[in-house]
């Protein structure tokens, strides 16, 4: 079982590389090196802040776009190309296919993030000429970004398991935006009364909460991140991704592929 999942995951990774997904690294490198050189000339005393903010924001946004646009096609493309039937005619179970796809996409994003992280640290070294201890906090922000990707990958797969690529992209992107406002939704629930309160509270817990994963600004100011937050974000991402993946498996298991 493990071998089959690993096989599907590695194929998904190879397919993403073949699709030139990692080309985004070139754009990222240009963006970051351009910012590192230019900002010092057009602004005042924020070179390091810009490198951290821009670098981590770009890692996050590039990853989200990759997760959504690759994730939404993972199932539907296989159906469209009819390659899914070849896979499922072998001793591969449907849930293994979904889980394999998830790990393949997550792996692609981790590799992508790894190279981008190297870029961020290189740009940081270029503007500061040295590393300080607080720079290690960037690794925490990167870890949170990867956790965010896990959730988005699972959501993209969930939508891909029952919807068209276009609608899946709309759903996944909408959830990403709503998830960024999750705390507002929770505050709104706190202010509402009666049925609205229940509905708003339900919605606030159902949509992913991405705001807790965004520590870029505080890390740019060298503010430490609580260990408890790292633990809880890890657990939240794992539970949420498992939930969405389970939904995808459930739908895909019962989907009529004829």
């Amino acid at each position: 079982m493990r071998t089959r999942i690993a096989y599907i995951a590695s194929n998904t990774f190879r397919e993403a590389v073949r699709d030139r997904v990692l080309y985004n690294l070139i754009a990222f490198a240009l963006l970051l090196s351009g910012a590192a050189i230019l900002v010092g000339q057009i602004s005042i005393e924020i070179e390091k802040l810009v490198v951290i903010n821009l670098g981590l924001t770009a890692v996050s946004l590039f990853g989200v776009v990759i997760a959504i646009f690759i994730g939404i096609g993972l199932v539907s493309k296989e159906i469209e190309k009819r390659t899914l039937y070849t896979v499922l005619s072998r001793p591969v179970r449907r849930w293994e296919f979904i889980v394999g796809k998830f790990f393949g996409l997550a792996g692609t994003l981790v590799v992508n993030t790894f190279f981008m992280a190297i870029g961020v640290f290189a740009a940081l070294f270029y503007v500061s000429h040295k590393f300080v201890r607080a720079d290690a906090l960037i690794l925490v922000a990167l870890y949170f970004i990867v956790l965010e990707f896990l959730i988005i990958c699972s959501l993209a797969l969930l939508f891909s398991s029952f919807s068209s690529p276009l609608l899946s992209a709309v759903f996944a992107f909408s959830l990403f935006v709503i998830g960024s406002f999750a705390e507002d939704l929770r505050n709104f629930a706190g202010m509402a009364h009666g049925v609205s309160r229940w509905l708003a509270t339900g919605a606030a817990y159902l949509v992913p909460n991405f705001s807790a994963f965004n520590v870029i600004t505080s890390i740019a100011h060298e503010q430490p991140v609580a260990g408890q937050l790292v633990l809880q974000n890890t657990l939240y991402a794992l539970f949420y991704a498992t939930m969405a993946l389970s939904g995808a498996v459930l739908i895909f298991e019962h989907r009529d592929l004829k």
């Binding site: 900002v39 602004s43 903010n53 740019a220």
Partner: peptide
């Protein structure tokens, strides 16, 4: 949520 970059 990318308010740090916006601030810059």
């Amino acid at each position: 949520g990318y308010d740090g970059l916006m601030a810059c």
